[in-house]
């Protein structure tokens, strides 16, 4: 017994003898969107391998969580870069400014497509945004044509649109905390809602009510909150050919042998279509740099240079292999200039 205590004690002493010497951080700290995470980590790894700097640390906190940490202040305990699958909101800018984070560089890195995918065992669906809205909103415009909403009566896709197959509506999607869900609501649901004239007019008159109609998903089991794990959705789709799943394009790209993307407004979600901005459900991706940290934390400028180099974010670059859809050539070179010169975005 005494021996065991001795060994334990020694382990403790050994452990504590290399006591923590709290020093300035010598690696870049990155937080933010889980959609940008695969790209950001790939760049970080290349950066760590090809430069004398340490490999940056990348946390996947979601876009909103990222801004919260990023805007908390200036200093080594706060992150240097945050990734986002949407642009920074005015309220977040305000928080940033209040905490002394006044100089922020915004870099747009490319696009991500949001796909509605299904198993390969059935023919691909052809949906319009209007179909998606009618199938998934909690309250839909009265089918009789009156300008009011009724609780969603549709059970099958055929009820929504006679040209669609006669299968039960069953859509697996991300939870409310996800940036993918935000983008889906904004692009697909709002887009579909706007196809009704009176709802479009409502948007001008009463934006809040419009948003409530367009952004509230069904809770009767047609929309299933499948959690943040997109691989799980892929597995469920394989098992249930009638179900559709909502996730980012990179998952479709990596699992093209098992699942296919539904056509939206007649456009197939392919690399080319999203890049050409023909596919309606695509969103820009960003990262934001805290300029005050450049010079204090080693390697920030070099990391940005790596990210914005052609071998990373170009059409032939290694990020394209990971599923990032690059910016058009002109925009890319413009963004590269912004990034190289660390041009601060306006805070108002």
């Amino acid at each position: 017994m005494k021996k065991i205590i001795c060994v334990l004690g020694m382990a403790v002493v050994l452990g504590l003898s290399q006591a923590p010497a709290a020093t300035a951080r010598d690696y870049i700290s990155i937080v933010g969107s889980s959609t940008v995470y695969p790209f950001s980590t790939t760049v970080a790894e290349h950066f760590g391998k090809t430069t004398p700097f340490k490999t940056p640390k990348v946390e996947s906190t979601g876009s909103g969580g990222g801004f919260k940490l990023f805007c908390a202040g200036v200093g080594v305990q706060h992150p240097d870069i945050t990734n986002a699958s949407r642009a920074i909101k005015p309220s977040e800018k305000q928080t940033c400014a209040q905490n002394g984070v006044r100089e922020i560089v915004q870099v747009k890195i490319g696009y991500d497509g949001i796909v509605l995918a299904q198993s390969k065992k059935v023919p691909a669906m052809h949906l319009s945004r209007r179909d998606i809205f009618l199938a998934l909103a909690k309250e839909v415009p009265d089918p009789s044509g009156a300008e009011k909403t009724v609780p969603n009566p549709y059970k099958t896709w055929k009820d929504v649109n006679p040209q669609l197959p006669d299968v039960k509506i069953e859509v697996l999607g991300p939870p409310p905390t996800s940036g993918t869900r935000d983008a889906f609501l904004e692009l697909a649901m709002q887009g579909g809602a706007k196809s009704f004239k009176w709802l479009k007019e409502l948007k001008k008159k009463d934006k809040k009510l419009f948003k409530k109609i367009a952004h509230t998903l069904r809770e009767d089991g047609a929309y299933i909150d499948a959690g943040e794990n997109d691989n799980l959705i892929v597995q469920k789709l394989e098992a249930n050919p009638n179900a559709l799943g909502i996730f980012g394009f990179s998952y479709l790209d990596q699992n093209a042998d098992k699942i296919q993307g539904a056509f939206v407004d007649g456009v197939e979600p392919t690399f080319e279509n999203i890049s050409a901005q023909k596919y309606p459900l695509s969103r820009p991706l960003f990262f934001y740099v805290k300029k005050a940290h450049v010079g204090t934390i080693p390697g920030i400028q070099e990391y940005i240079a790596e990210f914005t180099s052609e071998k990373a974010w170009g059409p032939e670059g290694y990020l394209a292999d990971k599923g990032l859809i690059p910016l058009p050539d002109e925009e890319r070179s413009k963004m590269r200039e912004v990034a190289r010169k660390l041009e601060v975005m306006p805070m108002e």
Partner: peptide
């Protein structure tokens, strides 16, 4: 996401179950 092997108590590090979680996703 941490590539470098941590060399002390204050280095950035992750843990085994976290690694499983990250890979599963």
């Amino acid at each position: 996401f941490i590539v470098d092997i941590p060399r002390g108590f204050t280095d950035a590090a992750t843990a085994l179950p976290v690694q499983i979680f990250l890979w599963a996703d």
